[in-house]
Every structure is written in structure tokens, then in C-alpha cells.
Write a protein that binds this DNA or RNA. Sequence first.
DNA 1: CCTCGAATCGGACCGACGGTCCGCTTTGCT
DNA 2: AGCAAAGCGGACCGTCGGTCCGATTCGAGG
Lengths: 200, 200
Amino acid sequence: MAERRDAARNRAAILAAASRLIGERGLDAVNMEDVAVAAGVGKGTVFRRFGDREGLVQAVVAESAEAWKAESEVLVTSTDRPPDERVITFVATLFDHVMANLAVVRALEQVSARGSGCDADLDLAHARLSTLIAQVRPYEDADFLAHALLANLRGEHLHHLVHRVGLPVGQVRLGVIALARAVLTGDLVGAGRDATMPPL
Amino acid sequence: MAERRDAARNRAAILAAASRLIGERGLDAVNMEDVAVAAGVGKGTVFRRFGDREGLVQAVVAESAEAWKAESEVLVTSTDRPPDERVITFVATLFDHVMANLAVVRALEQVSARGSGCDADLDLAHARLSTLIAQVRPYEDADFLAHALLANLRGEHLHHLVHRVGLPVGQVRLGVIALARAVLTGDLVGAGRDATMPPL
DNA sequence: CCTCGAATCGGACCGACGGTCCGCTTTGCT
DNA sequence: AGCAAAGCGGACCGTCGGTCCGATTCGAGG
């Protein structure tokens, strides 16, 4: 049978409440009962729908990652633009997605560092980026290079750069893109500087 | 007054027990009472000495980071070797330190992502690496490049590469060093491959 | 060696929170 | 309307981080 109407409503309410609360306070300052109350449901309902804390967080990010997945999907499959340009676009898009959902992404990282399950989205991002890079530099180790780039796109790392070190978001964005360009061209000049940066 | 003898003994016992337990099971599978029992003291003693869970973890890593700090200190101050070589040595040394204490380093990352205090060791590593890089490439943004390199030396990232992806430690080590070399020379050829790698 | 004050110890205790359970309610099909 | 099943929700439980205070141990001075 299809999902009952009240169940669907509650599901959406819980997801929205969780997303909002995590965004406002950060994961470690929101407990399951907060979410239940904010969603206007009982605690049991939250656990039945999402299993546990980890499941809830995964569902929240899955929702916000939907658009990114579709976007990156076409980037890998389509061949209308040169591969190197697609790598850059991929990195820029992923950066924007992570920054736009920083609290939720960090929440997922925290939860999956502990939990048993691996981070499926990270694996997906790596598979796609790796594929893209291999098209540009078939003789390098695209696998490792993708991991190295992805390390610079971790929520925790970007949070550190922006909120602790205090770097402007735009500068970090350009720096990350310069890094991606360096991976493609073998040239690292300009990484982290805006002055010498070619426009994206 | 100096620290009482029994207090010193207990302090050492707690630190040793915590280090061992975290190394064996990972931070999230060891609670404060486990540590107290393993150290042969009461729970209250653990909390009085170290304040809270975060403090205990910090003390444990501070202990294991002692040697690394001294080693990296001389690397920055001494000028007997060319700067580029010192950057490579710095990165290799830090990599080895992190891998040798992976569980404890990850524990610190988990704890300081939540806690109020920042990660002092990470800041120190960045300050030193940044200084070193600036000596080789004064016209680049050494600050950002240091951050980018350090992102590849995070405990969580290395844990992911080695224990989830399954990359051999030696290969990751060479890859990270190749990345460092790329930062210095502007050439990324060979990153992640052993075949084309110059020996360290 | 004995005494005494102070520092330290340790386990009983507390509050918070993740997760479970089961009797009550809602839903939607006939 | 009637009914069975899916869903609901809040009382309840176990665990764990952290606190507290009476008992204990230390070590300086006589």
C-alpha cells in the first residue's frame, strides 16, 4: 500500500523541522525530542519513520542533495562540453551545494564518522569526479586526485576555513577551483589568490 | 605545592588507559567509566583531573603530539636544509604521526568539532607549514596552500582512504608527498602513483 | 614515629537523551 | 457505517556524562 496521507504529512514536517533546527543550531544542539515537538508529532513517530538519529540526518541530507545529484548526473553523462571544463563546473557546483547546506553536511559527516554505514553521497561524488578527471588526465591517478580534491570540499574543512579562520567564502571558492584547475593542468599557480585567478 | 605522588600516578594511569582504549575501540565505543576502571581509579578522579570528556581526549593527544611538536619546531627554525626539502619533510613527518596515532587524532577531531575550543594542534601545524611554504613560494598564497595540504592530512580523511576505500598506506603517503611537491613546484605529475614518484 | 590539615579519592547519585513499547486513534477500503 | 491495519504518541527504560561529599591518603612538621 502507498504511504498513508497523515504519515506523508508527518514525514515532511519532521524533515523540515530537522533541517531547520540543524541549520539554526548545529546538530549537537538539537535532540530528537526537539525535532518531534517542532514538527508537531510524538517522539515515537520520528523514530518509526527514520529508525534512529543517523537515519534522520541521512534523510535530511538526501533531500537537500537531490538537486545536486541530478545536476552532477548530467555533467558526467553529457559530452557537449570539454572534459576539463566539466571538472571545474563539477567542483564549483559541489562547493556551492556544500556551502549552501553547510550545517547539514557537517551533521552527516559527524554522524557517519561514528555510525556503521558509509557516506553514500561522498562515494558518489568521488566516483563521478574520478571519472571526469580520468577523461582529462588518463595517465595520472584520477582516483587519488579526486580524493585529494574532495578533501578540500569536506564540510568540516570548509567550516574551519570560513568560520574559524575567517576566510571570505568567495576567496575559498576561487582557491578550491584553482586547485581543481591545477589537478587538470599540472600547474598550481594562483591557488588561493584572486588577483592571478582566471575567471570561472 | 607540587602534584601529589598518587595524583601523578593516577594521572599517568588514566592517560595510558584512555590512549589504549581509544586506540583499540575508537572514541565512541569507550565511555568515561571504562577509562576509570581500566586505570584502576574512580570515575570522579578522571573528571577532576581532566574536567570532561573533551579535556581527557585533548590531554591524550597532547601527550602523543609532544614528540611531533619538538620535531617540527626544529624543522621551522633550522636553516641548514633547503626550504622545499623542509616542507616535504614536514608533510611526511606529520603524515607518519597522524597514521601512527590515527584513532586518537580522529577522536580529537570528533571532540573539537563539537566542543567550544578550537584545535590548537591544527592551528600550530598550519602556522608552521604556512611559514615553510612561504619561504619557497613567496608569491603564492601560502596560507591557503597550507590549508589545502592539511585537509589531506586530516585523520578522518586518511582513515577514509585507508580503512574504507582500502588504499595501501604507502601509496597514500606517496600521494600526499606528491601533492606537497606539487605545491612547491607547481607540477602535479605523479600524484597518487608510485611508478613515477621520485624517492623521498 | 605521630599528628594534623589539606589534597585527593571514589562510588552513589542526578539529569539528559537516544531509543522502545503498547494502548489509543486515524485512515481508507468495502 | 464497519472494520482491520497502519500509524500515532507519550510514558517508560537504560546508558552515560558529569557532580558531590564523606572517607582516605599524603606528606610536612614536631
